[in-house]
Design a protein around this nucleic acid. Structure first.
Lengths: 152, 152
DNA sequence: GGTGAAATTGACAAGAC
DNA sequence: GTCTTGTCAATTTCACC
């Protein structure tokens, strides 16, 4: 799919605030309400817009502790890898998991309430997954930037 | 603020799909439409729900290349740190930036179209920010998990 | 805390330019 | 591909339990 400037601006606006009415969007884009409506439906149909979600302020639900965990597997057989990825994806504390290049195999982003909860997560959940060789954790001191919006 | 089971379930549902109507939510929660409405408004007022956004499928806009960059600063004076954080936050390719513990000072998540775009980003944007000592980049081979939803 | 009905406003479909 | 009109369904308010 090819995007014109209006599509790009529309995607930008919807990534900032998806609760804007089509009328508000039409004013910002100098378009009619129907035109906005049609463009959005097209973007949804094509799968460009994946879904609409509510974003929660972590601090308000006592989930202010962020850690990144590097993980190295013992072995890299197909079976081990598939099992590990499935198990990790099922852990609710893990919000992101990437297979990466470099010294370690995986990088996980973990969100919990505090260091004690993180310790429990490591001992009871993460390291109870088999095939994990070594881990290395880094703790977030300060979240400088975090956005879900990607420039089109 | 204290959450009962209905609040938790409501937050869970809205983090999955914020475009559900209050009627749909009322059926899932065994509540009246107005009760759902009031609970959502309260969560918005209290700042628990931060905002509503559209999520875009990276692949559809040719932004499939993810990299993590470790960065160490030359110096750590107040002035240098503030300037660096401000400059990095303004880079559109940087979607996340954390001040972290460990060998490096910062961890950046960068999203671009391909390795060539990443190279350009490093040469023209990131390393043109002053005070950067050393960097170490890891490339994402596969995105195993990525969610914006946090368990309440 | 919750409901149900009325008023307002936006979403959506059909047809014309 | 965009605009206008008209209908329907949603959100929002209010009186009440």
């Amino acid at each position: 799919m090819i995007f014109d400037d209006i599509d790009k601006k529309l995607l930008h606006l919807l990534q900032q605030d998806s609760k804007q009415t089509n009328k508000e969007l039409s004013l910002k884009l100098n378009l009619s309400v129907t035109a906005v409506y049609e463009r959005i439906k097209k973007l949804e149909r094509e799968g460009v817009i994946n879904k609409y979600v509510a974003l929660i302020k972590k601090e308000k639900i006592d989930k202010s502790f962020i850690a990144f965990c590097h993980i190295k597997l013992i072995q890299h057989t197909q079976e081990y890898v598939v099992k590990f990825e499935k198990d990790v994806a099922n852990l609710e504390e893990v919000v992101e998991c990437f297979h990466i290049s470099g010294d370690y195999d995986y990088l996980l982003k973990v969100i919990v309430s505090d260091m004690e909860a993180f310790r429990e997560f490591m001992v009871n959940k993460l390291t109870s997954i088999n095939h994990i060789g070594s881990t290395h954790s880094m703790f977030v001191i300060n979240e400088v930037k975090h956005t879900t919006a990607i420039r089109v």
